[in-house]
């Protein structure tokens, strides 16, 4: 039986009459990478936020390393331990990083909180190396960095606590094509070097192919298809997955036909 870094069992969350997440289950093997694909309103971000703990599920549970992840904990030590289970990288690092704190201070602060009483200099250097940032970037503040560099900082900060799972919510969506490719490659490299597992939330089927082993497709709060990434993208079985695949622009693309298919689905 494989060991799982993360399991979700029957997650459900409603807002009024709307079931944003409706009985969602998935499992992420240790060091694995699972994509959640869907459009706005599919419930993929709410699912991610439940896993991280930013939202509460009405029903269902999240397991990390086989143990139930508490929805709220008391006490500093337990809160920090909980934070080391799952870390999150957001879409826009300019909003998730403190504009007044230099890159090195961000990392030192995080390391100081989780691993007090150590010399963090070598670890800071290692983290910067790992995400491909030089010493010049270490002194910069988020405002002085490019979008790609900022996302590298956000990844380094999340990796600093050595989490079991990294939740990446549209983490490359706001980047330019050439920078996006750099970050996608970086994510693949980091997974080879460390034991971290990814939960990769995206609407981009191309990006999901690059960094995930398995994928679930969500629509209107439910999982409509699940399987290995190559299988799901190579021979999609659910009509909605097929519609998503057909919607990606490529030679011979016929937007009018897709619009028609969308109306009938």
């Amino acid at each position: 039986m494989p060991e799982y870094a993360l399991q979700a069992v029957g997650l459900t969350r409603s807002y009024g009459a709307v079931r944003a997440v409706d009985g969602v289950s998935f499992a992420l093997p240790k060091g694995g990478s699972l994509g959640i694909v869907g459009e706005s309103g599919s419930g993929k971000t709410t699912t991610a936020r439940i896993v991280v703990g930013l939202e509460q599920a009405d029903a269902g549970e999240v397991l990390v390393g086989g143990a139930r992840r508490a929805s709220a904990v008391r006490g500093r030590a337990r809160r920090l331990a909980r934070a080391r289970e799952v870390q999150m990288v957001f879409q826009d690092p300019l909003q998730s990083l403190d504009p007044r704190t230099s890159v090195e201070s961000v990392l030192r602060e995080t390391l100081g909180l989780h691993f007090p009483g150590r010399d963090h200099t070598p670890r800071v250097r290692e983290l910067l190396d790992q995400v491909g940032l030089g010493p010049r970037a270490a002194d910069a503040r988020p405002g002085g960095l490019s979008g790609g560099q900022r996302q590298r900082v956000a990844i380094a900060r999340a990796l600093a606590v050595e989490p079991a799972v990294l939740v990446l919510d549209e983490a490359v969506a706001a980047l330019d094509v050439s920078v996006q490719a750099q970050i996608l490659n970086l994510l693949a490299d980091i997974r080879e070097q460390t034991a971290v597992g990814y939960l990769f939330i995206t609407h981009d089927l191309g990006a999901v192919r690059c960094v995930t082993d398995d994928v679930i497709v969500m629509r209107q709060g439910r999982v409509v298809e699940a399987g290995s990434t190559s299988e799901v993208l190579g021979s999609p079985r659910h009509p909605y997955t097929r519609l998503l695949m057909d919607s990606v622009p490529r030679p011979g693309w016929d937007p009018a036909r897709i619009a028609e298919a969308r109306r009938t689905l």
Partner: peptide, 13 residues
């Protein structure tokens, strides 16, 4: 450019 129907693996960044 990442494409869903391309072979898996690293991108030529």
């Amino acid at each position: 450019t990442p494409r869903p129907d391309a072979p898996a693996g690293r991108l030529a960044a």
